[in-house]
Computed example of a mutant assay.
Amino acid sequence: MSEAQEDASLSRWIELDGAENVRDLGGLPTVHGRVVQPRRLIRSDSLQGLSEKDVRHLVDDLGVRAVADLRTGVEVSSEGPGPITREPSVEVRHLSLFPEAGDNTDAVAAEDDDGPVVLPWQGPKRSIDESDRRRGASGVYLSYLDDRADSVIDALRLIAGTEGATVVHCAAGKDRTGVVVALALAEVGVERDAIIEDYALSGERIEAIINRLSARKTYASDLDAGTVNFDRHKPRAETMARLLDVVDEFYGGVPAWLRAHGWTEEDAAALRHKLLD
């Protein structure tokens, strides 16, 4: 990363009391010589721990008017309503990237209310076919596209249709959030290297992210900050590069994938207007 790029990444971080992995995507360059405008698209880890000061900063100072919550139903139910859900000026949409046929059917909580929450990725793994193997480490990211294209499209439409800033978040703000943000950026022409660098930037705060999540009952059985291998959880540039390569190879690129799942030219124009104008 060049010195100028490093300065830009530092300026994108949003420091909050109750979240660790929050940054504004403003300043990312496009292949057409334009840049993403600030206070349009913000990515984050869980918003459950926001302080009142955090909420006021997001809503009043940064103009947040919508939240795309990519967590599963069981995460949302287990955590309860977060502070920003009480803001009347903010629309919060729950858009899980895991299969859900009904309320919380993507995962189940323990029979004992005091027991651990069973998260969807802790359950039985679906069978892996040859195409999954070719996808390598980014295979789970492709499963988001295969299983929940509807949520991906709805998240991008929420970004495009909101007058103010939209926050996209999940639990850690790196995997599910990373995929949706990458597709939004790719659709408006952000440079590939910039998309990859932004994805990997979450690695700078991985210890703080894991420490915060492991202190919450919802994720305690999945994460033990005392024994967890932080490096294993760190997002790597090559994972996002592979994802983009596979989308190019199998689907003809991000724009083609989006349009194959109901995204229209009007949607694309609205997203460009939102992020670039």
Rank of each mutant, 00 (worst) to 15 (best):
L142R: 14
S143V: 09
L213W: 01
L47T: 04
G253I: 01
S2P: 13
V254C: 05
V181F: 07
V76D: 01
L119D: 06
I195P: 00
R259E: 14
G18S: 08
R12I: 06
T239D: 08
L244S: 01
D106Y: 07
I128Q: 14
F98Y: 15
V117K: 04
R272G: 12
E130W: 13
A172Y: 05
R259Q: 13
D7N: 12
A165H: 00
R134G: 11
E163G: 12
L201P: 03
A182N: 10
V59H: 02
E265Y: 06
D146L: 12
L47R: 07
Y199F: 15
I159C: 06
R34W: 06
Y219N: 04
H273I: 02
G139H: 13
R12S: 05
P124T: 14
A237W: 00
Q37Y: 00
E100W: 08
E87D: 10
E191L: 12
V168C: 02
L10H: 12
A194G: 09
G178D: 07
A268K: 03
G189N: 08
A225Q: 15
S138L: 06
A172M: 11
E3V: 12
T177E: 04
L275Y: 08
E130P: 01
G226S: 11
G164Q: 02
A256Y: 02
L58C: 07
W257L: 05
L50C: 07
W121Y: 15
S131M: 12
G164Y: 00
I195N: 00
K234G: 01
R176L: 01
E191P: 06
K234F: 03
L145C: 10
I42P: 07
S138G: 10
V67D: 06
V168P: 02
G164F: 00
W263L: 06
G226L: 07
F98E: 13
A225L: 07
E207H: 10
P29L: 02
I196Q: 00
A184M: 09
L142Q: 14
S138N: 07
A172E: 08
E238W: 11
A186H: 07
T264Y: 02
G18L: 05
D147Q: 13
L145Q: 05
S96D: 02
K125P: 01
E238I: 11
G82T: 13
R216H: 14
R71N: 10
P116M: 07
E79A: 15
S96M: 00
E238K: 08
R242K: 14
G115V: 11
D103P: 13
D193W: 01
L145T: 09
S51I: 09
P235E: 08
H273Q: 15
R12H: 09
P88H: 10
E204N: 14
S78Q: 00
V190W: 06
L183V: 11
G139S: 15
L95V: 08
V74S: 03
A200M: 06
Q48S: 11
A215E: 15
S131A: 15
R242F: 03
L28R: 05
E187M: 11
R176D: 06
K217S: 10
V108D: 11
E197N: 14
C170G: 08
G102N: 12
G161F: 03
S11K: 15
I209R: 03
A137K: 12
P235A: 05
N211L: 01
A66G: 09
Q122N: 09
